[in-house]
Design a protein around this nucleic acid. Sequence first.
DNA 1: ATGAAAGCGCTAACAT
DNA 2: ATGTTAGCGCTTTCAT
Lengths: 343, 343
Amino acid sequence: MPRNALTSRPTLIDVASAAGVDVSTVSRVLSGNTSQRVSDETRERILACAKQLDYQPNIAARSLRVSRTFSLGIAVPQLDNPVFSQMIIGAERGARANGYSLLIAHIEEGGGDADAYARLARANRVDGLLVTTLDDNSVVLKAAKQAKVPFVMLNRQVQGVRNSIRFDVARAARMAMDHLIGLGHRRIAHLSGQLNPSTGIGRFAGYRDALLAAGLEVDPALVAVSGYTIKGGADAMREILSRPGPRPTAVFPLTLLAATGAMMALHEHGIRVPQDMSVVTVHDGPIAEAMFPPLTTVRMPVEQMGYDGVVGLIELIRGERKVVDATLAPLELVVRGSTARLL
Amino acid sequence: MPRNALTSRPTLIDVASAAGVDVSTVSRVLSGNTSQRVSDETRERILACAKQLDYQPNIAARSLRVSRTFSLGIAVPQLDNPVFSQMIIGAERGARANGYSLLIAHIEEGGGDADAYARLARANRVDGLLVTTLDDNSVVLKAAKQAKVPFVMLNRQVQGVRNSIRFDVARAARMAMDHLIGLGHRRIAHLSGQLNPSTGIGRFAGYRDALLAAGLEVDPALVAVSGYTIKGGADAMREILSRPGPRPTAVFPLTLLAATGAMMALHEHGIRVPQDMSVVTVHDGPIAEAMFPPLTTVRMPVEQMGYDGVVGLIELIRGERKVVDATLAPLELVVRGSTARLL
DNA sequence: ATGAAAGCGCTAACAT
DNA sequence: ATGTTAGCGCTTTCAT
């Protein structure tokens, strides 16, 4: 019984001698090398022998020879965040479809420079990296740059990073906000991932633009920073509720997890959703449906983002492409029980 | 600028010539080979050169030479289920700590034989496999057996599988049930993963045992199969609510996702938690806290399971161990708002 | 259309 | 204590 994957398995030599040809011929057939012709008869015979022996190429040998690992890495800061699980699902699918494996690297939050660097230095195990970060100035990013392999950033645009697949979050925000405004809401709070250093009202233009388009003003008292966790969302919501002045009638947390936290805070305060407060967010998923009441959301093509990122990355690696640069549009608004017309 | 990970990087030869020694000496130093002595002076010099050149070993070459890939695979059926994300977090940590990479394989549900087999046949990229399945008779399992590498099954015990890390779910169930019984509940429903073919009352003994220990009877009308999804939990809860006869005063869904679904169904029916119905489940996580009301749960060491599984697997691969066979005990009961004393 | 042969970077006998 | 050397299994010129 073999101890490991690479022990005592048939090699090209076995297939070659079974088929009575040279290894190079077998290689040509099995690796689908089209530049050289092999007679149909020989090809058949080789294929039959390979199948009969259950031949599986030794990837380490091939890697050594062709200087490629055929694996990609994906670095995620939170594995138990639906946005990242869905990204991974899409990325894995794309990788598999192209003969690549996906290696996961969990970047622990607050792991610090040394750790993140060390981790990604392992990048010599991969031909390319999919990088996601919650913090734009993250060390992860520097590490990825150090990693001397092409990388594509997902769901984030960062100064100096050329390759990225982004989500048109401004448009999604606009859709969410227009929904609330259309329901008659005027005092709409916003839980933002982080504040824009210049405007101070949240990173994404959608919130502000929608207000302005409706002739409303941006009230800083209605905006708080939630980050990207449930706890962050709950804290930000509590913060807004604790501020003096009239309470908002609706809230737009930017992320699903923040919205989940906001719902907690609202329940704590005995504020009924949607009667007293409408809630809408961006990014749909099973949790959104499972909330009470179920959340109205703007669907986000997260899996697609992972898939497109991988495909772009592979094209980058193959030199079939110089740059990966796409923006995915939001999918539709799914209206559920968390939003209602302002009475 | 290098196109990929393995192009134009310093090799052992570079380090050797920089240090003025032979490659074999460098190899001995850098691979920490303790069986052969190298003078401290030479060692220092080699280490310095390696560092200065930023030498990183070529893993493909090493793999080819030693017939090991230094990667492990983890096959999961649902990536967006907290139980699996947490397992992966633990597994990744364990792998990393031992110089292994973790490769993820997402087994799509209903992927069918051919697909699952084909996927795991790729197992020649890994030295071992962590296998998780929701369906005991899964083809995944057969595939893993075909995969000629050691594998450890997580969170499930299956006939004929020697290596597994299990969770003492019977004891966890007992803790959950005792909590409900202690609160005065007598009519307690159970949403089970699947039914036990012999008893017909759910796979796990904890539910039945707790009832019997309290002098209560098992009422089949209070048991339904939920599977392991939110929807399954919601459907099973609806099913029980639709049955004639007195309604239960508490429900014990076996999994967090099923509990989430059950909460949905209860809300739909206007049944208040915990006033009209107490809910307790096994496996804690952020969602449990985010529910309304927050769920009382028995905490489950899921990350630990991934970690222990990986460590055991590596020991298996190294031949330091013949079998991996452990059962993890449940952690504590966390009482939150979803359970209350029966009035 | 097929074969011969070199060599990717590394490790582990075996020599010295 | 360190050097020499033979491959691991594969792809890819270069011959034929």
